[in-house]
Simulated assay, not measured.
Amino acid sequence: MTEPAMPFALDKDGVRLAVRLVPRASRNGIDGIVQGTDGRPVLQIRLLAPPVEGAANKALIAYLAEMLHLRKGSISIRSGETARFKILFIEGDGPAIIAKLEHWVACAGG
């Protein structure tokens, strides 16, 4: 049995993370890894914040920073500012960040 593909990969100076954001959710949390519209894996994250004036993007960065124990300034949106599908860049020790992401997804049952 092969392991499912992960929505994150090592990149120069950090990690690239594919996310599908569900704003105005009933709770903050992750749904685990789901298949994106292009067939690639994405980490689906639900947030209470509405998609208005960047509120959901700010909440996404704050949520990831809190869950991964990182500074908000180390997380940036590379593409998808106004879309549900986003590519994020997390600056730092790539292998350590990937280990945190894998643990987080595993604990969430995703």
Rank of each mutant, 00 (worst) to 15 (best):
R71N: 13
K12F: 01
A65P: 03
P50I: 02
I98N: 07
K100W: 03
A96V: 05
E81W: 09
I45H: 06
V19F: 08
L60T: 03
L10D: 13
S26P: 00
I30S: 15
R46C: 13
G14I: 04
D93V: 00
K58Y: 07
I97Q: 01
Q44G: 11
H69L: 00
V15T: 12
A18M: 10
I97G: 02
V15P: 01
R20V: 11
A59P: 03
K72L: 00
L64R: 05
E53C: 13
Q35T: 14
M67Y: 07
Q44I: 10
L47S: 05
A96G: 10
G14M: 08
M1W: 07
R78F: 07
E3C: 01
L64D: 06
R27N: 04
D38P: 00
V15W: 02
Y63K: 06
M1Q: 09
K86T: 07
F89R: 10
A59F: 09
L43H: 02
I97H: 08
R84G: 12
K72E: 14
F89A: 03
E91M: 02
S76K: 12
K58V: 09
I30R: 14
H103N: 11
V22Y: 02
K58N: 13
L88S: 06
I61Y: 12
P4G: 13
L101N: 05
H103S: 11
V52E: 09
I97W: 04
M1I: 05
I45Q: 04
A56V: 01
A83P: 00
T82W: 10
Q35G: 11
V15Y: 02
P50T: 09
E66W: 03
A65F: 10
G14W: 04
Y63Q: 09
I98R: 11
L68K: 07
G80V: 03
I77G: 11
A59H: 10
A99P: 00
A59R: 05
V34T: 12
T82K: 13
G36T: 06
L47G: 01
E53L: 14
T82C: 03
D11F: 04
D31K: 11
L21K: 05
L60P: 01
V15R: 01
F85P: 07
I87S: 15
G39N: 09
G110Q: 13
K72Y: 01
P41R: 04
K100C: 06
G29A: 00
I45L: 12
P23L: 01
I77R: 05
D11C: 04
G32P: 08
I33R: 03
C107K: 13
C107H: 12
L48C: 04
A49R: 04
A65E: 14
E3I: 05
R27V: 02
I87T: 15
G94E: 08
E66G: 09
A55C: 04
L43Q: 02
R46L: 12
E53S: 15
K100G: 03
L101P: 04
A25M: 07
I75W: 08
N57T: 08
R20Q: 13
R40F: 05
E102A: 14
F89K: 06
L43N: 01
M1F: 10
E91T: 05
V19W: 02
M67P: 00
A5Q: 13
G110C: 10
L48F: 10
